[in-house]
């Protein structure tokens, strides 16, 4: 029996299809994600990025129904931003403001907070992560890993319930990746992460393997990851 509480804390796709440029990017997907840590894998062009963009309304499905913790992403990404935080692959594509404090305040002001309160909250989250000295810093003076941390904090400060990460570590060195993973591990949010680093996903609760817009495999990392690895390994002579 499904408990009502569980019902609202899940991401549900019901026969969802997405067509772009006359090709089916996603084909009739039905699943329910109620685990805390969900990894999405698949070869380039399998539809991973499109799938996660449906969750916060950046893309709208051509057919089917989506529910994210009881909300429908059809209201659009602006309204969904209170519920779903989105971390993009390249920090340079999502950092809009020149200073850390402005970057962190931006989402809060959009949520209707006053400038003053936004600033206080921004400073508070920096202090919480021992980065108080970053507030006045110019973002272009930070390293890639530090920039990605700013992106994560800029989303966390908005207190979303789901965090989506689209290959967040692909440009980072191993140490930085581990440090950011420690941070992600400590978060109470539900996490949906696309990654090509299989090691990162080993501790996750569930893995979806996408192939040509369909779910090819769905299970625990122990079930799915070795097969994914083997399928790719065949191409190495």
């Amino acid at each position: 029996m499904t408990q009502p509480k569980k019902q609202t804390l899940s991401i549900q796709f019901e026969q969802v299809s997405l067509i772009r440029n006359h090709t089916n990017v996603l084909n009739n997907l039905t699943f329910e994600l109620d685990q805390q840590r969900i990894g999405i894998i698949g070869h380039n062009g399998s539809g991973k990025s499109s799938l996660v963009r449906l969750i916060n309304g950046l893309l709208q499905p051509d057919s089917g129904k989506i529910s994210v913790h009881g909300n429908s992403p059809s209201v659009g990404p602006q309204k969904m931003s209170a519920e779903v935080g989105f971390i993009f692959q390249n920090p340079d594509h999502q950092i809009i403001f020149p200073t850390v404090e402005e970057e962190l305040s931006f989402g809060l002001i959009n949520q209707g907070h006053s400038k003053q309160l936004a600033k206080e909250k921004a400073l508070a989250i920096l202090a919480e992560h021992q980065r108080s000295d970053w507030a006045p810093k110019a973002i272009h003076s930070l390293s890639d890993g530090q920039k990605q941390l700013v992106c994560i904090l800029a989303v966390l400060v908005m207190e979303p319930k789901v965090l989506i990460l689209d290959e967040p570590f692909s440009a980072l060195d191993l140490i930085t990746r581990y440090q950011l993973l420690n941070l992600l591990d400590s978060l109470p949010q539900q996490l949906v992460m696309i990654s090509h680093e299989l090691e990162t996903l080993e501790s996750f609760d569930r893995i979806l393997w996408l192939e040509s817009g369909r779910i090819f495999q769905d299970g625990t990392p122990a079930e799915v990851l070795p097969e994914y690895y083997a399928s790719a390994r065949k191409f190495r002579s």
Partner: peptide, 17 residues
Amino acid sequence: EALAARGGISTITNPRV
């Protein structure tokens, strides 16, 4: 995309995809 994902600018009323 990044603007929209963080609530756009506060004056945008109708969501655009």
